[in-house]
Structures are given as structure tokens and as C-alpha cells.
């Protein structure tokens, strides 16, 4: 078992791939693997990229990876696509866009599917990130369609969250509704050569100013359409928190990618300097522990339920009003609670 970990730590690509497979399949023994990995993690910057379908995520990620490679850094990418809720099957197409990193093994690209209705995708993603981190990747990018709570949970496992907004993606209300403003550290208006890009930048800027609680400023000095400006970098100095940046890119031609990476770097610096990185990590680990505890207790109780003859026996009684769901829950969990409390007294 730990041979695999040794191989992974020694930089063997196949071992890394296999570890991620075990994590994805929730194969027996994967927990041991991940817990062995933990001590080797904490060195990578994790970047979450989300946005609506067709906003250019994969293309931008491809260019980002290539640019990081030019800067001498290694990159891991996890691209998550939806799977069919009916068959569980999926066509994972993000790899097609990875044309800038042909044959470059130091860009480790892995496609993952949401695997139907079974939960645990964010757990699997977190664990896969750990594998890439322990492998020694400098930058890890998680790419997912920003469509719902699930995806938001996933990108929240990243240090920095980048939201792609295509031009003309609707009025102000749409942006509020999507709930993406709260999670984005960096907003990228991709396909900035299209009509409506300026307006989208403008709208985003206004929304972000509102959400800051600030009175809307006239957007004179960092107005829309200032592609060449590096003004993105100086705004955050005003307050101690991080003010989300807005960057325009044309990912297909690689325009604006350097600026994206520089902004990511300055966000990383901000995280370090402000102590936010540690705070984030603590919150994240707390969440991870809670999730695991919840799942383990769930498993234990499912086992107990089976042992007592399965759910159906209880259902009959509930349907005929002989008992009720609360009583059943008490009956099942009661012994566990007693057991734990007794132990505590000793």
C-alpha cells in the first residue's frame, strides 16, 4: 500500500494517477493513502476556476498552465464535468482544450466526473488536490462549471477563487442571483473582444462596489475597457481586506493571461501577509473533519439499521402511525449516544 505513496512521492506519474483513481472510486484503503499524504501537503497554491458553460474556462486553464510552465513551475489540473444522473456515464471533454501542453508530463491533467447523485465529490476533489500537492505540483487548478451549490462547495476548497464571466451574460439581477460575487477573489471577463465586454466589466465593478458596502464611486480611474492598465494591482491597498479584481482576457489568443497569473500571485501574497491563508486552512480542515465524522457516523448507523432488519421494518410502523420518524431516530442513535457519554465519564 505505502509502496504506491513512495512511488508518488518519488515523482512517478503512474502512481499519482492510480492514487487519484483510488480516491475517486472510494476504493478500500484510500483513506490510509490520503492520511499518509497529508504530512507532505501544504506547498501548492490551489486555484479554483468556475464560470458558466462556454465561458472559456478550459481554454484559459490551458493557457495558464502553459504560462506557469514558461515560468518554470509545475502544474496540476483537476477538471470536473457533470455526469448523467441516469446512467452515471459522462463524456469528459475539457482535455480537448489542453492543446498548449502537448506531451508535457509536468502538467498533470485529470478529468473527474460528478459521479451521479452520490455525494462526496468535494471530498474526492480535496483528496485529489492533496495527492497533487504531495506529488510536488507548484500550482493546482480546479476547474468546474459554476452551476450550483455543489460546484461552489468545490471551488471553496481552493485558496483563490476565480470566476469567469462571459460578456453579455445578463443584467445585474442575474449576477446577484448566481451568488457568485461572494465567492470570487478574481473575476475574469473572458472573450473580451466580444461586444458587451466593457459593459460586463462595468456591471461587475458596480456590483462588487455595492457588495463592499461602499457608496458607488464614479468609476473614473479604473474605468471599463482599460485593457492595458495595471490598475488592477493597486486597488487593494485601500482597505485591509482583499478587493476582488476584474481582469479582461482573450484566452484563445493568450491575451491577459500574464495579468491573471500576476494577480493570482498577489492574492497569494495577500493570503500570506494577512494571515488569511492560515485562517482559510483552519476553516477548511474543520469542515473536512466535520464531513468525515458525519459520513462515518452515517455509515455506522446504516450498519446498525441493517442489523435491526433494515429501514422497511420501521417504515411500516411509521406509515401505520404506530411510531414516528423522531422516535425511530432516537431509538437508533440513543444507544450510540449512551455509549459515547459513558465512555466520557470514565
Amino acid at each position: 500500500m505505502s509502496d504506491l505513496i513512495d512511488e508518488l512521492l518519488a515523482g512517478k506519474h503512474r502512481a499519482l494517477a492510480r492514487v487519484i483513481t483510488k480516491i475517486e472510486d472510494r476504493r478500500s484503503g484510500h483513506r490510509d493513502l490520503v492520511s499518509q499524504l497529508h504530512q507532505h501537503t501544504g506547498n501548492a497554491d490551489v486555484i479554483g476556476v468556475t464560470g458558466s458553460p462556454g465561458s472559456g474556462k478550459s481554454t484559459l486553464v490551458d493557457k495558464m498552465a502553459a504560462t506557469y510552465r514558461d515560468r518554470g513551475l509545475t502544474v496540476g489540473v483537476i477538471a470536473i464535468d457533470p455526469s448523467s444522473p441516469f446512467t452515471g456515464g459522462a463524456v469528459l471533454g475539457d482535455r480537448i482544450r489542453m492543446g498548449s501542453n502537448i506531451g508535457d508530463m509536468d502538467v498533470f491533467f485529470r478529468s473527474m466526473s460528478a459521479r451521479g447523485s452520490l455525494g462526496g465529490l468535494s471530498t474526492a476533489t480535496t483528496d485529489a488536490v492533496k495527492a497533487l500537492d504531495a506529488f510536488g505540483k507548484d500550482k493546482i487548478i480546479i476547474e468546474t462549471v459554476g452551476a450550483g451549490q455543489n460546484e461552489i462547495d468545490i471551488v471553496k476548497t481552493a485558496d483563490t477563487v476565480m470566476v469567469l464571466v462571459p460578456p453579455g451574460s445578463g443584467d445585474d439581477v442575474q449576477m446577484l442571483k448566481a451568488g457568485i460575487l461572494e465567492i470570487g477573489d478574481i473575476f475574469v471577463v473572458n472573450k473580451a473582444d466580444l461586444d458587451g465586454a466593457n459593459r460586463t466589466v462595468q456591471e461587475l465593478r458596480e456590483m462588487l462596489d455595492y457588495s463592499d458596502g461602499a457608496i458607488l464611486q464614479s468609476s473614473g480611474h479604473h474605468g471599463a475597457g482599460s485593457m492595458e492598465g495595471t490598475d488592477g494591482l493597486q486597488i487593494e491597498a485601500e482597505s485591509e481586506g482583499w478587493d476582488p479584481e476584474i481582469i479582461e482576457t482573450i484566452a484563445q489568443r493568450g491575451e491577459g493571461v500574464d495579468e491573471v497569473l500576476d494577480t493570482l500571485d498577489s492574492h497569494a501574497t495577500y493570503l500570506d501577509d494577512s494571515g488569511e491563508r492560515e485562517r482559510q486552512a483552519r476553516t477548511r480542515y474543520a469542515e473536512e473533519i466535520r464531513t468525515l465524522v458525519r459520513e462515518d457516523v452515517n455509515d455506522l448507523m446504516a450498519e446498525e439499521l441493517d442489523h435491526r432488519g433494515g429501514m422497511d421494518a420501521y417504515l411500516d410502523d411509521v406509515v401505520t402511525r404506530e411510531t414516528d420518524p423522531y422516535t425511530v431516530a432516537d431509538e437508533l442513535v440513543g444507544p450510540l449516544a449512551d455509549c459515547v457519554r459513558d465512555r466520557r465519564k470514565e
Binding site: E24, R26, R27, S113, A124
Partner: peptide, 8 residues
Amino acid sequence: SADQEQRT
């Protein structure tokens, strides 16, 4: 459960 094996 996250531990349910999901071989695909």
C-alpha cells in the same frame, strides 16, 4: 456515504 465504493 463517501466511502461507498464507486468503481466506474
